[in-house]
Simulated assay, not measured.
Amino acid sequence: MNEIIIQNLLSPVVLFFALGILAAMVKSDLKFPTALSETLSIYLLMAIGIKGGIELSHYSLSTVAKPILGTLFLGTSIPIIALFILRFLKMDLRNAIGLAATYGSVSIVTYGAAISFLGESGTKYEGFMNVLVVLLESPAIFVSLLLMKLFEKKEGHSLVFSQNIGLAAGNSSVISGLIDKEVMKESLFGKSVLLLLGSLVIGWIVGEDAVPAVKPLFMDLYQSVLIVFLLNMGVIAGQRLPEVKKHGWKILLFGIFMPVLCGTLGVFVGDYVGLSLGGTALMGVLAGSASYIAAPAALRTSVPEANPSIYLGLSLGVTFPFNLIFGIPLYFTIAQMIR
């Protein structure tokens, strides 16, 4: 395990991320233009999606059915686990819901770094794993909102807390209260889900015929673009760390304990549904990561009372670097041990 961690620590992906954190800590004037940061994000989403679609064209529906069910299980169970832990830690309902949605969803960049890690170690994985990334983006958001409504009813709170979320008092059903256009839009048609799913479908339709057109940009340059993107993420993560410290040591421990717990659960689920060593490790990465794109975008609309410095600061300032440095090798090692 130590060798795997050292190998990961000395990879260009992690070292440039560390350089970004250092730049933030010493208050360097290093920063990326917003437009460039957005462009890099779009590139990574498209690259992962289209490569996954091409690989998906090689598989039948019966092959991917069990992994899809395992992914949906993780997407619904992780928010429940997170909320239970956070309520035990006496966190208020709104911020607990924000963290539950964030940790139930997925970090596409952590997933990209894990693919890079597997590539360097020569470990193969199922191409349809990119489909599972898309599937894990949205369920946690809906489950978290459902849990919030159930908790509010139990505690006798008013069901009307935000016009944006579309909840109504009275005899309306629990599910109907969650059907809000803005929440649906952010969860299903936000940038990350739309680009991932759209690129994946395009790659699946075209199949191997797409390789000559996409290989020079989306395959050959992927690793280099990921390094540039993670330098930028390092700067952002370093800037978020002081915000997390304000909320005490318990929340910091949650940002480390939660990915280990859920990542381990993801590894066991991956093994149970019959994934390969690489696929099982990636399932652990998916379960152990925390979103800082799709979930926060939905939360700004549906739970405006939740503090972004908590759910964004923790996912980006603590869990993301932890997974990048220690989590990915840990999930890979656990996957090796149980196979």
Rank of each mutant, 00 (worst) to 15 (best):
V225Q: 02
M233N: 11
Q239Y: 10
E208C: 01
G207T: 09
V206I: 15
L231K: 07
E186R: 10
S187G: 12
E182P: 00
L226H: 02
F218T: 08
I205D: 01
K191H: 07
I205V: 14
E186K: 13
W204T: 07
L226A: 03
V183E: 03
D220G: 03
P242A: 07
P212S: 07
S187W: 03
K181S: 12
L226C: 06
G207H: 00
G207Q: 06
K181H: 09
Q223D: 14
V206S: 08
V214T: 05
V235H: 04
L195K: 02
D220E: 15
P242R: 10
W204Y: 14
E208H: 10
L241D: 04
L231V: 10
M219N: 06
E208R: 11
L196C: 05
S224H: 12
D209I: 05
S192A: 14
L241Y: 12
F218L: 14
D220M: 12
P212G: 00
A213M: 13
A237V: 11
G234L: 07
S199A: 15
E243C: 04
M184I: 14
V244Y: 02
K245W: 11
V193I: 11
M219A: 08
G198E: 01
K181Q: 05
M184K: 01
G203P: 02
D220K: 14
I205G: 08
D220W: 08
S192G: 00
G238D: 01
G190K: 03
M184S: 10
K245L: 15
V235K: 15
K181V: 09
V193S: 05
L197P: 05
E208P: 01
L226I: 08
S192I: 11
S187H: 03
V193E: 02
D209M: 08
Y222H: 12
Y222A: 10
V235A: 09
M184A: 10
L217F: 14
G203S: 04
V228Q: 01
V225E: 04
I236T: 15
V193H: 08
Q239S: 14
A237P: 00
E182I: 08
R240Q: 14
N232P: 05
I205W: 10
L241F: 15
L226Q: 01
A210N: 03
M219T: 14
I227Q: 03
S199Q: 00
S192F: 00
L226S: 02
G207C: 11
L230W: 08
L230N: 10
V211E: 13
K191C: 04
L231Q: 01
L200Q: 04
D220Y: 11
G238Y: 10
L188G: 07
L196V: 08
V235Q: 13
K245C: 02
V206T: 08
L194V: 07
M219S: 12
L197E: 09
S199L: 03
L217G: 02
M184C: 11
L200W: 02
Q239D: 13
L226T: 06
S187I: 06
V235W: 11
K191S: 08
G190F: 03
V244W: 03
I236S: 13
P216K: 07
L230G: 01
I236P: 00
E243S: 13
